[in-house]
Design a protein around this nucleic acid. Sequence first.
DNA 1: TCAACTCGCACCTTTGAACAGG
DNA 2: ACCTGTTCAAAGGTGCGAGTTG
Length: 473
Amino acid sequence: MQSLRDMKPNFSGPAQPPLSGGPDAYLQGNIRMTLEDSELWKSFSEIGTEMIITKPGRRMFPHCKISLSGLIPCAKYILLVDMVPEDGFRYKWNKEKWEVAGKAEPQPPCRTYLHPDSPAPGSHWMKQPVSFLKLKLTNNTLDQHGHIILHSMHCYHPRFHIVQADDLFSVRWSVFQTFIFPETSFTSVTAYQNTKITKLKIDHNPFAKGFRDEGTNSKRRASRNPACSEKKSKKPNTQSRDTDDEDSPPDFRQSSYDGFEEEQADLSKRKEGEVKEERYSPWASEREHAHGGRTESPVGADTRDLYNTEQLVPAPASYQPYRFHEHGKSPSPPSSVGSSNGGSVRSGFESRIHDVARVPEHEASKPPAEQGPSPCLPQPPPSHQDYAGVLNMAMAQTTKPGGVLGHHIYTPYSAEQSLGQWGGPGPVQYPPPPPPPPHHLPTDYTTPAVHHGYHHGNVAEWSQYPLFSYSCW
DNA sequence: TCAACTCGCACCTTTGAACAGG
DNA sequence: ACCTGTTCAAAGGTGCGAGTTG
């Protein structure tokens, strides 16, 4: 397991003080997050994970499931997940590979999924793996169910946030610790593009059991398409026209997901992350960027480094790039992805800093080659990238009278419980308007006063706006 | 023309209520 | 009355493939 700091050799700042000297050092010290089903995630990531998004919302598979340790058993924590764009591009599936198809669409309203158990004591979170099974993805920008809104043919990765907070209202001035697992990056699609992914999904998702070759539905498929019945009865994946059998990891081909779950008992299959110092809410961070702090200044970089809220859990090189940038016409092999920026992990890192820290329209005008290859590749996230997920949220908020905020957090509470929204009312402007004038933030984001000063609003303000309309129960 | 998207379908798992038995 | 286990139906999660859209 590698820390974010390890992946950023250029960030010359002193090894960041673990903030151990601070008053909240006790809660920063040794939180550990482990991705369950890591091997399954890797098997998808090696091919290029795709997640179906639909208007009514679709679950992720594999779904996000983590284990936690190092929490204070009696202290309450809130767990959140949001989706962060990997870059500023839209992709298309062309000839068995992903290619850049233009600039990314304006980001939809950023939403955060709150684990239904939140808030709960550390002992609760640590006693068993925490599943985000009910998290759903949608491409419906007008979604009213609280699903996470994504654009199709774009690349994202989930971010996990742990906040020590007694209740939902105190979250915003609590300390965030953010974790990322590179192997969880995925491309959102409305229909599977890569038949290998389809096959993996069918093989491991119990709900898709009916599509397995050994399943009872071979008759159904045969009846639906008699012409192909012979092929389909022999091929587990009815869509597969490529070399599935050879290319798919044999371990996953016929095994059931249940079986895989059993295998997961082996801790070696997990992916662990160590905590990095976390100081303030990622949303606060993004706000900083949205206020003009998006930063290209070295000072800004140092500051980000010092107070970075994101915990990177780097992926092994084995499931590196599968996606090619088309720029320059010739798709570069996975190994060349990093080299375009110098060949180091750091390179991809920096490229993504550009990708996410800028206004999409802006970055799209840049030749992708300059920005570096992308996406969905298990790359170390840049510190800027921490803020990407809510960048447009912050922009929208700061530009719309009344403090519109696009970052919605949904909780298990009922729709009737209008606990409020993360800082603003109503629908976010979409696409987001231009960023507001620069606005500097103090470095101490841990005090409520600071949050107030930056439009985090107060409890009363939140409670005006229905937010927790989505129950994951 | 075609890629992306939507929708209805059949098949499947999950969930919880209802019931029986100890 | 309580607990446990079983059965069953409803709800909802899947990918497929045809049709639609831009």
